[in-house]
Amino acid sequence: MSKNKEEGTGAAAKTPLRKRIKWDLVALAASAVALYGLSLAFPDKGERAMVASWEFFKEMAFVLPALMILMGLFAVWVDRRIVVKYLGKGSGTGGLFLAIVLGALPTGPLYIAFPLAAMLLKKGARVANVVLFLSAWACIKLPQELMELQFLGWKFMLLRLGLTIAVLIPMALLAEVLYHRGERGRIEPFAEEEVEMVEESLGIKAPRTGPAETEA
């Protein structure tokens, strides 16, 4: 299991991040050089570009620090164990909504969610719940919604949020049906002891007698 742990947290946490930061800098350098060069070549258009950049920068600077702090607060105050506790085996239809709510809590980047989701599957959680949890983690986050509200307005934000939830639920159920159709490539549920070992290695060991456990 220690091999699994290394692959899960070590590789996932380091490589993509390093790759991404490089791309960030490349994109920044390229766009900055292009903006500067074109502005020198076409001064009147350049002025319009600079004004637009400055306006958007100001608007982002007004909200981004607050959203970053909000994410930090959630990361510190919301215990990731609740996900394992509530989405384990035996959570029914209510589990679908719970999966969305738990996924939407801004507690970390997407690559943290994958080992968590794998754990849930191995623990025997519903595939639909795990799909919903991951999708919600990816696209329904409180800070994201606030940013959307700020820039695209409440109509756009609310409609997209409502549609996302409405479409994701049947999609997750369909994914579950398709996932179970063929046995090849399926993740076999782990034995009790194995689950405990993975939980311990991820530092997300759920209390033995959580509600999800007793229901099942």
């Binding site: 991040l17 930061i21 960030d24 800098l25 994109a27 920044l28 766009s31 900055a32 292009a34 903006l35 074109l38 502005s39 076409f42 258009k45 350049g46 002025e47 319009r48 570009a49 600079m50 637009a52 950049s53 958007f56 920068f57 982002m60 981004l64 970053m68």
Partner: peptide, 20 residues
């Protein structure tokens, strides 16, 4: 800190879109 380069890149890209 991690997001800062992306923010600045997008600010520049927005300038490029609106201006050019």
């Amino acid at each position: 800190k991690r997001l800062a380069p992306s923010v600045l890149a997008v600010v520049a890209v927005i300038g490029l879109i609106v201006g050019f």
